[in-house]
Measured scan of single mutants.
Amino acid sequence: MATKAVCVLKGDGPVQGIINFEQKESNGPVKVWGSIKGLTEGLHGFHVHEFGDNTAGCTSAGPHFNPLSRKHGGPKDEERHVGDLGNVTADKDGVADVSIEDSVISLSGDHCIIGRTLVVHEKADDLGKGGNEESTKTGNAGSRLACGVIGIAQ
């Protein structure tokens, strides 16, 4: 089992970053940390998408990683996509320092995120509470600013 993974985020604009993942036990939580720069100040949706395909930019990554066919939600919700990591918060300089621990994603097994795409979005994720159909699919997080395929790390 891989215990570490990394993702280099890039987009068409100024947004870029490096996100690290570490899972010490196969059924334990995954620590997610790193930094994203070039964002507007505020909240930005942060999700693992189904495919590791960036051939047409971030759009070819498909929908959120959702092997259990659930509705979109927040990272602490029972009803959520596996890939729903909530929001990252950018400061006035456009930098989001990421520090998350998640017990639904994994670096092995059915919820493995390796080979899938991590995406940072234009807007805040409403965590499935926006009151419309799009909220239950995407959290109304808007366009995909930057993305990268999650790969095994040393």
Rank of each mutant, 00 (worst) to 15 (best):
E78T: 12
R80E: 00
K10C: 15
P14G: 08
K123N: 08
V32N: 01
R80V: 00
E122L: 13
G131W: 08
T89M: 15
G28V: 11
E50F: 14
L85C: 13
G34I: 05
V15P: 08
G83A: 03
P67K: 05
V88C: 07
G57W: 03
I19L: 13
I36Y: 04
R116Y: 02
E41P: 07
K71E: 14
N66Q: 12
P67S: 09
K76M: 13
D97G: 14
K92P: 14
T117D: 08
A56R: 10
G34C: 06
R80S: 06
L118H: 01
S143C: 04
E22L: 10
H44I: 04
G142H: 07
I150S: 02
C112V: 12
L9E: 02
D77L: 14
G139N: 01
I100W: 14
Q16T: 09
L39E: 03
G130S: 09
N20C: 06
K24D: 15
D102E: 12
L9H: 01
D84W: 01
V82A: 10
S143V: 09
K37W: 07
S35Q: 09
G139W: 02
I19S: 02
V119E: 01
A96D: 05
V6G: 06
K4S: 07
S60V: 01
W33F: 11
A141R: 01
N27G: 09
D77K: 03
T136S: 07
V104P: 06
L43S: 12
S69C: 15
P29G: 15
K137N: 11
K71H: 06
P67M: 05
V15R: 11
G11R: 10
L145A: 07
I105G: 03
V98S: 05
E79K: 11
V120Q: 02
K76W: 13
A96T: 06
G131Y: 07
G139A: 01
F21C: 04
C7H: 01
G86I: 01
C147L: 01
L118G: 06
S35A: 14
G115P: 01
R70G: 12
G115I: 02
T55E: 03
H111P: 09
A56E: 09
S108H: 08
R70T: 10
E101Q: 08
D126N: 04
I19P: 01
I105R: 02
W33M: 12
A56T: 11
D77N: 09
V82F: 13
P67F: 06
V15C: 13
K129F: 10
G142A: 10
I18D: 05
V8A: 10
D97Q: 15
